[in-house]
Design a protein around this nucleic acid. Structure first.
Length: 115
DNA sequence: GGATTGACCGGAA
DNA sequence: GTTCCGGCCAATC
């Protein structure tokens, strides 16, 4: 394993790896925002994280990554909400009619959190 | 390297 | 609550 990792196509880049690895660590019931992911990995930004997820996010629990407002990604709102009900993720307005995630209760403290 | 796309953020009306 | 705009970053063609 060496530089060849980021050079070949089909595999995620170094930046993407950081993002994917982090998202894969998000425990069920909790979530993170694109900005938070970018903040933890210390690279790119909300756009950078979003674009990486769009390519390689299919291999990680993407539904645990939300927008700043607690809304799931564009086009995948229905899909994400389905997962929240399975994991018991707190939804604003109720788990039946809620369409947003309660970031105040579902935001993950991060890989450095006591646990 | 240049131009285009995309699962974004924050502010204002 | 919805719509319009500029800024931001990375992957792709």
């Amino acid at each position: 394993v060496a530089v060849a990792e980021g050079s070949g196509r089909g595999l995620p880049t170094d930046f993407a790896e950081e993002v994917l690895d982090l998202v894969a660590e998000i425990p069920p019931g909790l979530v993170l925002t694109y900005a938070d992911v970018a903040e933890i990995v210390g690279r790119g930004g909300p756009r950078g994280v979003g674009n990486v997820m769009a390519r390689f996010g299919g291999d990680v629990p993407w539904w645990r990554v939300l927008r700043s407002g607690g809304l799931p990604p564009r086009g995948l709102e229905d899909r994400a909400i389905a997962h929240y009900r399975q994991e018991g993720t707190p939804l604003v307005g109720g788990p039946l009619t809620g369409r947003r995630v309660d970031l105040a209760r579902a935001r993950w403290a991060g890989p450095g959190a006591p646990g």
